[in-house]
């Protein structure tokens, strides 16, 4: 019997670059902010101390008080309650966009990389074409065709973001497909579908996750813009993007709170998500390359 090679420490010359060891402060910041925002999106409406849509014109533009912790808006509605209630549409709609675009983009990318040749060239060209569409314009167009509300812009943005995920995942998948472990699986008799699901996807997962996160951050901005323009969420429903717009008039009159708070939350969400996505992407590249 052949002799066994001794213990099992991580092989020191392993070519795989090790993961980034410690998690830095910026990442912690991003994760904590995202966690809080997620709580707002899920439980916000329940946490709201008052009815976010209850108007009280005599209590308009109040400053912070024990009754209204962040004050009130032009209609005397409690700002804190509206901010808590408005997170759902501002964050969940982009989440749907990101998830759907990632699922679709990854599937197309893996199919393209697996079949290669003409299929790959054709799908890559499709990515390029869709990539050329300005997302916001398409979303506005969708509203024009299908009417007001978030459904049409979410669908439009999903399509626009497919190549954001697809292009990167395709290049990662192309690299993997040419590696011997995939070829060995082919010779071993596995079906293409099995190899893609069992071997290819797990090995590009880091890229997929990183792109999904970046996609989400772009979608937050776009959805906020749609709501700002009044094409998505309809009043009196609270939404951060819509609040930035409705606070605009008060802003000029020296009451910036509504626009400011809502805008700040959007910026925080985008900033933390893109910081996280950026780090995930760097990490993914370190392993894939």
């Amino acid at each position: 019997m052949s002799v066994i090679e001794t213990p099992l420490p991580p092989h020191p010359l392993s070519p795989v670059i090790r993961r980034i060891r410690g998690v830095d402060l910026v990442t912690w910041f991003a994760v904590v902010v995202l966690g809080l925002l997620a709580l707002i999106a899920i439980f916000g409406p329940m946490l709201a101390p008052q009815d976010p849509n209850a108007t009280n014109l005599s209590a308009a533009f109040q400053g912070p008080s024990s009754e209204h912790l962040l004050g009130t808006d032009a209609s005397g509605r409690d700002l804190l309650s509206r901010l808590l209630a408005g997170g759902r549409s501002a964050l969940l709609a982009p989440l749907v966009v990101a998830l759907a675009a990632t699922a679709l983009g990854t599937t197309v990318a893996v199919v393209a990389a697996w079949f290669g040749g003409f299929t790959d060239r054709a799908l890559a060209r499709c990515f390029d074409i869709v990539f050329g569409f300005p997302g916001l314009l398409l979303a506005i167009l969708a509203v024009a065709v299908f009417g007001l509300g978030l459904l049409a812009p979410v669908l439009a943005l999903t399509i626009v973001y497919v190549p954001y995920v697809g292009r990167i995942v395709r290049s990662g998948a192309l690299r993997e497909v040419s590696l011997p472990y995939i070829e060995a699986a082919k010779v071993q008799g596995f079906s293409g579908r099995y190899i893609c699901l069992r071997h290819l996807l797990p090995n590009v997962r880091k890229l997929v996750i990183a792109q999904a996160v970046l996609c989400f951050s772009y979608a937050v901005v776009d959805v906020a813009a749609i709501n700002f323009l009044g094409l998505g969420v309809q009043p009196p429903q609270a939404d951060w993007g819509a609040m930035v717009a409705s606070g605009e008039a008060s802003l000029i009159r020296g009451n910036p709170e509504e626009s400011l708070y809502a805008g700040l939350l959007i910026v925080l969400a985008v900033l933390s998500v893109s910081l996280l996505g950026d780090r995930l992407l760097r990490n993914a590249d370190a392993v894939v390359l």
């Binding site: 052949s2 002799v3 090679e5 001794t6 420490p9 020191p12 010359l13």
Partner: peptide, 21 residues
Amino acid sequence: PVIPGRPLSGLEVGVGCPFAD
């Protein structure tokens, strides 16, 4: 004829002759 085991790298060396095992 084979030498058993695998070649050690400089990182894994402890006390004594590195080839001992």
